[in-house]
Design a protein around this nucleic acid. Sequence first.
DNA 1: TTGTATGCGTTATCAC
DNA 2: GTGATAACGCATACAA
Lengths: 324, 324
Amino acid sequence: MNKKPTFQDIADYTNFSKTTISRYFNRPDSLTPENKKIISKALKELNYQENKVARILANGKTEILGLIVPNLYLHYYAEMLNQFVHTYEQYGYKFFVFAGSDHAETEKTYIQELLSYNIEGLIVLSHTVSSKELARLNIPIITIEREDVYTSSVNTDNYLGGVQAVELLEQCNCDTFFFINTVPDDAYKKTIPALKRYDGFVNTCKEKDLEYYTYSRDFGNSYSDMQKAVRIFSENYLPKFQGKTKGFFFSNDTAANIFLNYIIQEYKELPKDFKIVGFDGSPISEQAVIPTSTVAQQIDKIAATSMELMAKLIAQKKQAPEKN
Amino acid sequence: MNKKPTFQDIADYTNFSKTTISRYFNRPDSLTPENKKIISKALKELNYQENKVARILANGKTEILGLIVPNLYLHYYAEMLNQFVHTYEQYGYKFFVFAGSDHAETEKTYIQELLSYNIEGLIVLSHTVSSKELARLNIPIITIEREDVYTSSVNTDNYLGGVQAVELLEQCNCDTFFFINTVPDDAYKKTIPALKRYDGFVNTCKEKDLEYYTYSRDFGNSYSDMQKAVRIFSENYLPKFQGKTKGFFFSNDTAANIFLNYIIQEYKELPKDFKIVGFDGSPISEQAVIPTSTVAQQIDKIAATSMELMAKLIAQKKQAPEKN
DNA sequence: TTGTATGCGTTATCAC
DNA sequence: GTGATAACGCATACAA
């Protein structure tokens, strides 16, 4: 029926003050070696477990980061989460994970919830909330591969990715080049950095005077939606290009993989006149029946860079004066 | 430079006491409608944001659960996490996610970290820490598909899964039946409920007097390891069974999918004398080139059941006296 | 219905 | 090198 021991219990047990116990953890140099041993022993004997909640209230450091992803069914995001979770060993940050709802209002409630826990920073991969609103939160924020006008961000060189995709497909002797983008190409999303792949692809095709087509649609929010979208694309476009060697550059690996599977189901194998390139570099591209090429996005690097940047932002904030 | 407003600020602003402000949130019925409006208005004007850290220290409720998975590259676990994360809407619990290390000691440090945040419960899908040790933690614990002698647990009917797999393969006119288990079949892991699939498979085969083989190995900890393991199995066993219709029951969908891909790469299609069944029901089975059958494990149901159970355990604990 | 006083378990600020 | 005391922001028993 007795509760967890506190610093006060340890203090009583050792005849020190709880201040000294606290110092044992935070400034151990200021204790004599003998006293350290005494306290260390008492901690074990009473089976002390640290209480970070109380520490947070006292010094404000939660060691918690928020992470908002659009979903977890795209391998890209699952892998990204995986990479972030594993930075615990290095940075000690725990993550509150929210999978987006596509509704800005809902994601804002997520953010409020995160703020109520005094998270030290927020990493955003979802697209619904604008960087302007995110910036207003006055906590370190990093956005990844999305609109980032008002936030720090980590992105791959998407333009270069588009260029490299064309070059890769060209080396495969393609006659016709397709860019298949799984998001609608409307005005709002122009600011998503991923759309620079479009520019890289198109400009390179123009320079090289290649025959190219672009196809931007909302491929939906689930695997089955994407399968439907792929079928629609295939049935409408493929018949027109028989006999030509076709190069397909997909804006993410999952879509590329679905397309690959669709083709193999139709032809029982991947015909020689189909060349497929994805972008993410998520593990699914290795898992494909016939591995597709990928313009590697190096998810691990993105996560590592993000955490470096986050650590810096947090360190900065400690020194800077509060604004809000 | 001013800080976030507190109840005290709201109290000063409205000429109430901070107790009343607290009650506005916790027992709103005890306030008059007019006063509620006054406070509500003040909260907006001062842009109040709730502070759960302080609330936790005062009432002990963190609304945080710990979740330990073995990894996130198996679709089964990613999907499981996905399902749990989405229970936020219903239960309001946030999750601290740790991806296992295969080292019991490391996972124990994870658990200590979780405890230091006063998590309300712990959900364990990893295998390294024994249920006996978990039970000693004195917080609500749910284990999923693992050794669970001393903990509450949620498992599928693995035995039935083995039975159904055989029946499914039998309907496909298989001559020979394979059970491929991706974990070693050693003494320790005998207590993992998943191994009852083995019993279900073997017993059913015996009853029906079928020709069957079992193959239990450690398939490793990464996708590429599993690919190697699949190749080794295939090269060693398949040549001996040419001409027979072979039924393969895999203990997880990822392995089944890798096997499927391997076969298709070898034969350019799935030969008619190969029948493959997986177990998980994770989305990867839908994603396969040729969808494999799955003895559905209904990940969504498992997560839902786990959360129901967890909610009950937490409610119970509130009433029961503390032990430790 | 509302207010007062106290506690939650740490850390930070001063003393000594 | 160590200790007393006041925060940190909220919840809750008890009073009024």
